[in-house]
């Protein structure tokens, strides 16, 4: 164990953990939104992230003609490229989410099959997406161009406020709070919450169930796509299997926070990001996963609804 790193790098680890946590938050929203409405885990969401990272590369390289060896962008071109890639990745993932619902869930739901069947069909879709990407890329990593020069706003207590770190935290916060308001304040958000509470009653109230479920998958896909964009912008690389680790971490975050509610996913994601950083720093990087899953098991044993499960129950989607 190495506690000495804490004294000099404590705030740095916190900041990096929060930034990583925001990526988890945005992905875990994809899990938690769907769970809130269907009470099912959308296992295909991990591959939706992966497709989002490739969509980001496609937007940056194939559509906007940046190359991996070019210099970072500046001014309007930079803003335009980032916004376009973010929107493109989010839309692709949103539409993919809708497609996943159509293929893996809707028909089985209409037939009234066992809930397990939907989980398996979601895993099947996940494998199809992952394998398709593997074959298409020959299992090789794909490098994204460096769009953003990694300059720093400055250091506070050893924490380096680098532009990409700040961007993730700010944009991630905006996206989360916009979604939170949408679900809690808008008419459509009310419909989502109604379906979450009771499918039968919401049908009686005239809510189009299929439309609301598709919308939920779409919104979950949008936030997942945003996470994929941030991931690709920061790490500048992706691979066909990138979704597995990210999906697992985000799913863990959702469960830690209390799956099914938005704020639980938020707290769970940030908690997990920071926990990973501290576990890596103190125990060694090879102990990161062990620590995370040990904490998950402990949390579930003590509080099966997740750390923030009950406190934020009213925000359930």
């Amino acid at each position: 164990m190495n506690f000495s790193v804490l004294s000099s790098q404590f705030w740095s680890l916190c900041l990096q953990g929060v930034a990583l946590g925001f990526i988890y938050v945005l992905i875990s929203l994809g899990y938690t939104m769907v769970y809130g409405v269907l009470r099912l885990i959308n296992f295909a969401n991990s591959e939706v992230v992966m497709m989002g990272t490739f969509a980001t590369v496609v937007a940056e390289v194939a559509i906007l003609k940046n190359v991996s060896t070019s210099d970072p962008l500046h001014g309007f071109r930079l803003v335009y490229t980032l916004v376009f890639a973010l929107v493109f990745s989010s839309l692709i993932c949103g539409l993919l989410g809708v497609l996943v619902e159509l293929v893996a869930y809707r028909r089985l739901r209409a037939l009234g099959t066992n809930r397990l069947a939907s989980l398996i069909s979601a895993i099947a879709v996940s494998i199809v997406l992952s394998e398709a990407a593997r074959i298409y890329t020959h299992s090789a990593p794909v490098t994204a161009p460096r769009l953003l020069e990694k300059w720093s706003f400055g250091e506070i207590g050893g924490a380096n406020f680098r532009v990409d770190t700040v961007m993730i935290i700010l944009a991630g916060s905006i996206i989360f709070f916009a979604l939170d308001r949408f679900v809690n304040r808008s008419r459509l958000g009310k419909a989502i919450r109604a379906v979450s509470m009771s499918e039968e009653n919401s049908k009686l109230m005239g809510i189009n169930l299929n439309r609301v479920i598709s919308l939920t998958f779409f919104i979950g896909g949008l936030t997942t796509g945003a996470a994929a964009f941030f991931y690709t912008t920061v790490y500048e690389t992706t691979q066909f299997n990138v979704g597995f680790n990210l999906g697992l971490a985000a799913f863990t975050a959702a469960v830690l926070g209390g799956i099914g509610n938005l704020r639980g996913a938020f707290y769970g994601g940030i908690f997990l990001g920071v926990l990973e950083q501290f576990a890596s720093a103190i125990l060694g990087s090879q102990w990161k996963s062990v620590t995370v899953f040990l904490v998950l098991v402990l949390v579930l044993l003590i509080k099966p609804s997740g750390i923030f499960g009950e406190a934020v129950q009213q925000t359930r989607t």
């Binding site: 790193v5 790098q9 990096q16 790490y235 720093a281």
Partner: peptide, 10 residues
């Protein structure tokens, strides 16, 4: 592994 920030900190 994707995120090497904790190693960099160390």
């Amino acid at each position: 592994t994707s995120d090497y920030t904790s190693v960099v900190a160390k």
